[in-house]
């Protein structure tokens, strides 16, 4: 199948290097300590953060750092065919683990000993790139909860189809079976915290594709920073002195 037309347009009318429209909203869940909604095109994810709070299971308590937990789930209505998935299937367990590890890397856990941070992410609409969208939503929610972090982790995916590197794959491109690289970076520190790839790629092309994904991450990071700054300013002026 042709994923990039001869005019250089993709199936949804984007250029190969173009990202989908992103939109973020802070404070979607009123009872959570921090929460956010993150949209990348038709992918929509909601994240809620609770904590730092007392560790529920005493045996997991660590005296020198905080415990980070993450739960990923997909709403039944998020995909085209509505089906009931068992909770804790392999895919969601794996993504929960990925998000947890990525987030744990940037949270300054040593500042909150003997406490626990819970991150809940749920996919409301799935159209490819849910993994990246979940990480971005989780970052926003953590920042909203005022949890100290090294940097804002952002994530973006890129693929390689019809011998063209494509940024931010949607569902059609994702299910084509080509290589799909998901990158998570700490944009200010220029460090990679997550790198995943399905299928195979020659090493020199991988570098290009990764570069493309990193650029995408940086664009998202700028946007997230703007949203957060705007939100903080608003809180500040409303509070007054």
């Amino acid at each position: 199948m042709e994923y990039v037309s001869p005019e250089g347009l993709r199936s949804d009318g984007r250029r190969p290097m173009e990202m989908r429209q992103i939109r973020a909203e802070i404070g979607a869940v009123s009872k959570a300590d921090g929460s956010a909604i993150f949209e990348m095109g038709n992918t929509k994810v909601i994240a809620a953060v609770y904590g730092p709070r007392e560790v529920q299971n005493r045996s997991q308590q660590m005296s020198d750092k905080a415990l980070v937990r993450c739960e990923y789930s997909m709403a039944n209505f998020s995909t085209g065919d509505r089906m009931r998935k068992p909770k804790g299937d392999r895919r969601s367990t794996e993504i929960s683990l990925v998000i947890r590890q990525t987030m744990e890397e940037c949270i300054l856990t040593h500042l909150m000993p003997r406490s626990q941070i819970d991150i809940y992410v749920q996919v409301l609409q799935a159209d490819g790139g849910t993994r990246s969208a979940c990480i971005n939503a989780a970052t926003l929610a953590l920042a909203d909860a005022g949890i100290p972090m090294l940097d804002l982790v952002t994530s973006c995916s890129a693929g390689y189809l019809n011998s063209t590197p494509l940024l931010d794959l949607n569902y059609v491109e994702d299910s084509a079976g080509g290589p799909d690289v998901t990158v998570g970076i700490l944009p200010k520190l220029d460090k990679v915290t997550l790198l995943q790839m399905d299928s195979k790629l020659p090493i020199d092309i991988l570098e290009n594709v990764m570069q493309l994904a990193t650029e995408g991450c940086k664009a998202i990071a700028n946007y997230i920073r703007e949203i957060l700054l705007e939100n903080t300013k608003q809180l500040e002026y409303r509070r007054g002195s």
């Binding site: 904590g51 730092p52 909203d144 909860a145 005022g146 100290p148 903080t232 809180l235 500040e236």
Partner: peptide
């Protein structure tokens, strides 16, 4: 020194 508004 970061003074965050919305936190515990």
């Amino acid at each position: 020194f970061v003074r965050s508004l919305l936190s515990r």
